[in-house]
């Protein structure tokens, strides 16, 4: 589906959202969501259950209209929803036929290669395939349509651990070959290590953080040292924990400055993606209570 809402300049932005809002009756599922996803990235859309990930994806893919703001993706978007739906009476080959019939660009070889890679029988009705196999058919359909932007809602949810790793690997090789942009949502952060290079963090319908993953992680540092009210470096405290004689801080360093050197009793620790996401999500839980 093509959903060019507004022309995006030559800054090579693949997906853009401006003050995006979407509500279900009076309840806002998504609010004030603004971001630019550069082309060719693999972006992870992370958030707790009910954070608005699916809503954001359905709006970005053009399946739902926004109530506020605007959203747009450059070029053709393929969306695979959480349920990985397929027509139960269609065989996998017929699902590919559907892809060929209903898309203006179709790469049959690529789609078939995906199915072959995961040993999906071509002539069996999809209703008789396992949930994981149905998901592979849905992926093959999306891959075959050669989208500019591929949106996957919880792509790894009903796959076994081995299939998860294989799907991620295949996906990355598709990205490398075609240069498409991928936006995938998950609430299992551990799945993302080494996959995503861009992060969009959602909580309670709002965008908590977003940006290049390496940059985000480089700008956030954990410090542990003697009990103290303030961290040893200037910056925004994202999280702080104190016990009797020790304090630890998660600090967002000011942008554009070299990483300060700390000495003495303080030790610094680089963050993993999981640390970072969990710390951020925790702040919203506290914030919600305050």
């Amino acid at each position: 589906m093509t959903t060019v809402v507004e022309p995006v300049g030559d800054t090579a932005i693949a997906v853009r959202a401006r003050a995006l809002g979407k509500r279900y009756r009076s309840k806002w599922a998504l609010r004030e969501c603004t971001f630019d996803l550069p082309e060719g990235r693999v972006a992870a859309l992370v958030g707790a259950n009910g954070a608005g990930k699916t809503t954001l994806m359905t709006v970005l893919s053009g399946l739902l209209d926004a109530d506020e703001g605007s959203a747009g993706a450059v070029g053709r978007v393929a969306f695979v929803s959480q349920e990985k739906p397929v027509y139960r009476h269609f065989s996998a080959a017929e699902m590919l036929r559907l892809g060929a019939r209903l898309n203006v660009v179709w790469d049959e070889a690529r789609a078939r290669r995906w199915l072959a890679r995961f040993e999906i029988p071509l002539d069996k009705a999809c209703g008789k395939l396992s949930g994981g196999q149905q998901a592979q058919v849905a992926f093959a359909l999306a891959i075959g349509s050669r989208p500019d932007v591929l949106m996957l809602d919880e792509p790894l949810a009903n796959l076994d651990p081995l299939a998860r790793r294989e799907v991620t690997a295949e996906l990355l090789s598709e990205v490398a070959e075609t240069g498409m942009t991928v936006l995938l949502s998950t609430h299992v952060v551990a799945e993302l290590a080494g996959v995503a290079d861009y992060l969009l963090l959602l909580a309670h319908g709002r965008l908590l953080a977003g940006g290049d993953l390496d940059e985000l992680l480089a700008r956030h540092v954990g410090y542990t040292g003697p009990r103290s009210d303030a961290p040893p470096v200037p910056g925004t405290v994202v999280a702080a924990r104190h016990d009797d004689n020790q304090s630890s801080f998660l600090v967002e360093l000011p942008a554009g400055q070299p990483r300060p050197v700390v000495a003495g009793q303080w030790t610094e620790r680089s963050l993993t993606l999981e640390d970072y996401v969990l710390a951020q999500l925790e702040t919203t839980r506290k914030g919600a209570g305050a």
Partner: peptide
């Protein structure tokens, strides 16, 4: 019910 509208409407067809 089978969520397949999401499949067909995600192709190049409104």
């Amino acid at each position: 019910e089978q969520r397949t509208h999401l499949v067909v409407w995600s192709q190049d067809i409104t």
